[in-house]
Amino acid sequence: MTIQAASDALVSLNGVNKHFGQLHVLKDINLQVKKGEVVVVIGPSGSGKSTLCRAINRLETIDTGEISIDGKKLPEEGKELALLRADVGMVFQSFNLFAHKTILENVTLGPIKVKKLDKATADKDAMALLERVGVGQQAPKMPAQLSGGQQQRVAIARALAMKPKVMLFDEPTSALDPEMINEVLDVMVQLAKEGMTMIVVTHEMGFARKAADRVVFMADGQIVEDAKPEEFFTNPKSNRAKDFLSKLLTH
């Protein structure tokens, strides 16, 4: 990657290393994501793809290297870090909706407390977002009353409510029943079409083919391939990727 390309990257990881004890989970990771780009990260479990995703908003600390968002280096702690996180939306595998708050309150909490929006405006924006992801009817309910697919769509709305510069998805459909996966993927495809910058860790190859600009294949803590989806799926270069893809297609 040239220096020119690196400097206009919205998300930039340079020489990132991380260990969990003896385990070297991220090995010298270099990744640049431009504004509006949709990057899908795939790979076998334990390859470090979730850790990579979580490192981008510092839910995981890194040992060495540098991560910057929109040209700003990730701060280590405190207010600065909190402010930067507000610009990075995150959707988790297990939804993580605030269990003691209604659906509407889940979405408005960030805008009211972090962005200091007044409640009326925050409510109005939140309702618009909930309608957009198709769960407007559920606004007064508690998270546990919703299906997994609905909860995950609320989680996407909650992240969008902060008007993030980039959205991170950490296996957003892995905890869902099969019939609910598509309703979440549809929202994500729509989001990609609207030009949102997205980094998506997933096992949904269909989504990667349909919505990704680039596919990043990880194995054993390293980025093994970084290619356009068509190229990656039809003509993977590394044996590791060929092996991974062949296992997927067996069933």
Binding site: S94, A155, A159, M162
Partner: peptide
């Protein structure tokens, strides 16, 4: 669950 705190931090709460 630790995910509750992570979600809170992810939306920018200190």
């Amino acid at each position: 669950p630790v995910g509750q705190a992570e979600a809170a931090r992810a939306i920018g709460l200190p």
